[in-house]
Computed example of a mutant assay.
Amino acid sequence: MEKDKAVDSRAAMDGEIGILARRKIEAGIIAPIYEVMRERLGEEVAQSILDTAITRAAIAAGKSFAAKTPGGTTLRTFQELQDLWTQDDALVIEVTKATDEEFHYNVKRCRYAETYKEMDLGHIGHLLSCNRDGVFCTGYDPRITLERTQTVMEGASHCDFKYRFDAKAKPASE
């Protein structure tokens, strides 16, 4: 219950809606723009443009979260953000490792993937959502890296997230 209050109060402080609801709204805005790009430029170029734009937005979001993190960023502070992505039952996850150097979990259910498929956007869902994961953490703290070999979005039974923290690497603020 306390954990839920922390998530609610953080969202209320920011005046933000949950990330799943935000992604659905964004996808509704992006879909017709993407269709025009696809018609005029072709699928490959349209996807490349979308990938570049979302990557830039994810890095900027990571930097914004980092700037609001009291005392600086670590893998532990990054782990605390996970509640924002699981809010509203958006993800069902199983954490398999959570230390100062590694954070591993499997996503058993992904409502982001379900939402994009319901919106007939499954073919670009990886661009709208999954591709953000690795670059968000880079924006948040370049010492954090993600290894993932499969996603629900692309048809796997689960997503396998393995974040690592390299304490020897140079932090963004230096």
Results as ranks from 00 to 15, higher is better:
G72V: 10
T86D: 02
A61V: 14
P70R: 11
L84R: 03
G71V: 10
R76H: 06
T55R: 12
L81W: 04
I54V: 15
L50H: 03
T77F: 00
A66L: 07
D83E: 14
A58H: 02
F78C: 01
S64N: 14
T52F: 13
L91S: 00
L75N: 00
L75D: 00
F65K: 08
A66P: 12
W85N: 03
E94I: 10
I49N: 01
R76A: 08
A61P: 04
R56Q: 12
D83T: 14
I59P: 00
V95E: 07
T77I: 12
T96Q: 01
A61C: 12
T86I: 09
P70V: 13
Q87G: 01
Q82D: 13
D89F: 01
K63M: 10
S64T: 15
Q47D: 04
Q47P: 05
A61Y: 10
A98N: 06
T74D: 00
T86R: 01
V92R: 13
A57M: 06
Q87K: 09
L50I: 03
T55D: 11
I59Y: 00
G71Q: 07
T74W: 00
I93E: 03
A58E: 02
D89L: 07
R56D: 12
A46P: 05
A46T: 02
S48M: 05
A61T: 15
D51M: 10
D88G: 03
V92C: 11
Q79T: 13
A60N: 12
I49Y: 06
E80N: 15
L50M: 06
F78Y: 06
T52P: 07
A67K: 15
T74S: 05
K68N: 08
A66K: 08
D89R: 09
D51Q: 15
D83P: 09
V95K: 11
Q47M: 08
P70F: 04
T77G: 03
E80I: 15
T52D: 10
P70E: 13
V95M: 04
Q87P: 03
T77S: 06
T55Q: 07
W85R: 06
I93D: 03
K63E: 12
R76Q: 13
S48Q: 05
L84W: 00
A58M: 07
A66T: 15
T74L: 02
G71Y: 07
E80G: 15
K63N: 09
A57V: 07
E94K: 10
G62N: 02
G62Q: 03
I93M: 09
I59Q: 01
R56N: 13
S64A: 14
T73P: 04
G72T: 11
D51H: 12
I49K: 00
K63S: 10
Q79F: 04
R56Y: 12
W85Q: 04
T86W: 00
Q47S: 07
T55L: 08
A46Y: 02
E80T: 15
T73V: 11
S64F: 14
A53T: 12
F78P: 01
A61W: 11
D51T: 12
F65V: 15
A60G: 07
D88K: 04
D51R: 12
W85L: 07
R76T: 14
K63A: 08
T52V: 14
L81Y: 05
A53Q: 10
Q82E: 14
D51S: 12
E94C: 07
F65E: 09
A61R: 12
D89C: 07
K97R: 11
